[in-house]
Computed example of a mutant assay.
Amino acid sequence: MAELETVQAAVAKAETELRRASFTVRSRDRAVEVTVGPQGELTALRFLDGKYRTMAAGELAACVLEAAERARTQMSRHVMETFEPFTRPSTGVSELTGVDIDWADIFGPAVLEDPRTAPGRSARNRLRDEINEDTEDEDHHV
């Protein structure tokens, strides 16, 4: 019973933390910055450095969608990492087998892909992701 209560308290703590979580991501071309909330909802959108003024409508839309998708994926992975301990069986109580969660069913199959090797990412983009020119341009979690 004590272990079950410990797990319940840990789940409640994780849920509270996730309710306040957000991720902010810039588009790869650094024209757009989006922030998503705990359910992947878009909570902020910023157009950076006036770049949007010279972009075609479709190009700007693609930047917004790309950044939003990356932020949602990061939030999904954060949820998975937060709840991962509850998917493991208890070492002390054999009846607590852990929760079986189909993350791909909840978030879509892309959430299970390694972000460094996901299909559609060119070597150039992977290299660009590795270059970290300044810390203010990093994607970040709150």
Rank of each mutant, 00 (worst) to 15 (best):
V34G: 12
T35D: 12
V36A: 04
G37E: 12
G37L: 11
P38V: 08
P38C: 14
P38I: 09
G40F: 08
E41I: 11
E41A: 15
T43R: 15
A44Q: 15
A44I: 11
R46L: 15
R46T: 15
R46P: 13
F47Q: 14
F47R: 13
L48P: 10
D49K: 12
G50E: 07
G50H: 10
K51L: 14
Y52D: 15
Y52L: 09
A56G: 15
A56F: 05
A57M: 10
A57N: 11
A57L: 13
G58M: 09
G58N: 12
G58I: 10
G58E: 13
E59T: 14
L60I: 08
L60C: 09
A61M: 13
A61Y: 05
A62F: 11
A62D: 14
C63W: 07
V64T: 09
L65W: 14
L65Y: 14
E66A: 14
E66G: 15
E69T: 12
R70W: 10
R70M: 12
R70V: 12
A71I: 07
A71C: 08
M75T: 05
M75S: 05
S76P: 01
R77Y: 03
R77H: 04
H78C: 03
H78D: 03
H78A: 06
F83D: 01
E84Q: 03
P85Y: 01
T87K: 02
T87L: 00
S90L: 02
T91A: 07
G92L: 07
V93F: 02
S94L: 11
T97M: 06
G98C: 04
V99M: 08
V99P: 01
V99R: 05
D100A: 11
D100R: 13
D100H: 07
I101P: 00
D102P: 04
W103Y: 03
W103V: 01
F107A: 05
G108Y: 09
G108T: 08
P109I: 11
P109E: 13
L112F: 03
E113W: 03
E113F: 03
D114W: 00
T117R: 02
T117S: 03
A118W: 00
A118Q: 03
P119C: 01
G120F: 02
R121P: 00
S122I: 00
N125H: 06
N125T: 07
N125A: 04
R126P: 00
R126V: 03
L127F: 06
L127E: 09
R128I: 05
D129L: 08
D129S: 09
E130G: 10
I131D: 02
I131P: 01
N132G: 05
E133C: 07
E133R: 08
E133D: 10
D134W: 06
T135I: 10
E136D: 14
E136R: 11
E136L: 11
E136N: 12
D137F: 07
E138Q: 14
E138N: 15
D139Y: 09
D139W: 12
